[in-house]
């Protein structure tokens, strides 16, 4: 099955480190309004969203997020309880069916309403892991140690990632503008220091996918998806080599990551970028996270989709010919999605 599908529009909020006093639908509404205006489309062939009900603490919380979309008469709609990058994957697959031309994808998350580090404990195996209460940062720190010891990298290498990400983030009007890392900062959970951990962020983002001529009609320079793949490692952190990301490696190879000029990596911790660069075989010549990445703004459930949007924007503005957007999910980079986009379709 083959059909040329492209990212034709990308919109995100100006992300905030604190609760801006908006509900999730209120956070999302301007983003949906803007992407409808920009594409001139009010009704999409398919709509798919990514969010996490645990962030709000209400079952089916994602349903109310349809209000700003407008779902009457009934629309064709779906939702994933994951980062919206996986909603984009579902929309991509839906478009391959050839009977629709456009899809709206969005993700949103307010981290400010609860303790996200603890929310992430709910995603763990309920028999062996969750009952011990390991939080997200404690688990990430296990992976950081495994990587540092295997690769011979130093904590300074982690700080360099944070420093570069924050400097880039300060140039990005949508990211949080964070100070340079303070080298005297103590450990959050050793070996990770506060700047190695993505900031608590509220925000939302939306992407419109379109196929074939519809994409050319909606966008001067569509970001054609020439490869997209997602893979998962075993869930138990003790059943795999934490110092590497085998799932990212396979997803990258299958999506055709070789030769990208820009990579937007969904690294929520400094060491994750180093692991992902290695797994995706990104050389020194690849521009990584020019947006500042998740270390500069991490609206959960949207941050992975934003990586695809930021990468696509480099195609839209003509500054790159081949780019990569990456999203991750689960503890310690358990699951990885790689989306490769180019200025020309596969042909």
């Amino acid at each position: 099955m083959s059909r040329d599908i492209a990212v034709v529009a990308f919109v995100q909020t100006k992300h905030t480190a604190e609760d801006a006093g908006l509900t999730e639908p209120e956070l999302l509404a301007p983003v949906i309004a803007e992407i409808k205006e920009r594409t001139g489309i009010d009704r999409f062939g398919f709509t798919c969203s990514g969010s996490c009900d645990y962030l709000e603490g209400k079952p089916f919380a994602f349903v109310s997020a349809l209000d700003p979309v407008g779902a009457w008469p009934p629309i064709s709609e779906s939702h994933v309880e994951m980062d919206a990058a996986w909603a984009l994957y579902e929309a991509y697959v839906r478009l391959l069916h050839d009977d629709i031309d456009t899809a709206l994808v969005y993700g949103f998350g307010k981290s400010s309403q609860t303790d996200v580090r603890k929310v992430m404990t709910f995603q763990l195996d309920p028999y062996y892991l969750a009952p011990l209460g390991p939080d997200q940062v404690s688990l990430a720190a296990l992976q950081a140690r495994a990587y540092l010891e295997r690769a011979g990298a130093k904590e300074d290498d982690l700080r360099a990632v944070a420093a570069r990400s924050r400097a880039a983030g300060r140039e990005n009007p949508y990211a949080l503008h964070l100070e340079d890392p303070d080298p005297s900062a103590g450990y959050e959970v050793a070996p990770l220091r506060p700047y190695d951990v993505a900031p608590i962020t509220d925000g939302a983002a939306a992407i419109v996918l379109a196929a074939g001529d519809k994409a050319r009609e909606l966008c001067e320079r569509p970001a054609w998806i020439t490869g997209i793949d997602h893979r998962a490692d075993p869930h138990s952190p003790g059943a795999r080599d934490l110092s590497r990301s085998e799932s990212a490696r396979i997803a990258g190879e299958r999506a055709g990551a070789a030769g990208v000029e820009v990579a937007e990596l969904h690294a929520q911790f400094s060491h994750e970028e180093l692991i992902l660069r290695e797994a995706l075989k990104l050389g020194e010549d690849v521009l990584v996270n020019p947006s500042g990445g998740a270390l500069s703004a991490n609206p959960v459930m949207a941050a992975g989709l934003i990586r695809i949007g930021e990468a696509a924007a480099r195609i839209h503005d003509g500054s790159a010919g081949k780019v990569l957007g990456h999203a991750s999910s689960g503890p310690c980079l358990q699951q990885n999605l790689v989306c490769v986009m180019e200025g020309e379709p596969r042909g």
Binding site: D135, S138, R145, P191
Partner: peptide, 22 residues
């Protein structure tokens, strides 16, 4: 591999600094 929790959280199994370990 291990990580060191210098400030345990309420849901953690120990209430004084400890390590998580595989």
């Amino acid at each position: 591999t291990w990580s060191w929790v210098a400030h345990p959280r309420p849901e953690h199994p120990l209430d004084r600094p400890f390590a998580w370990a595989l």
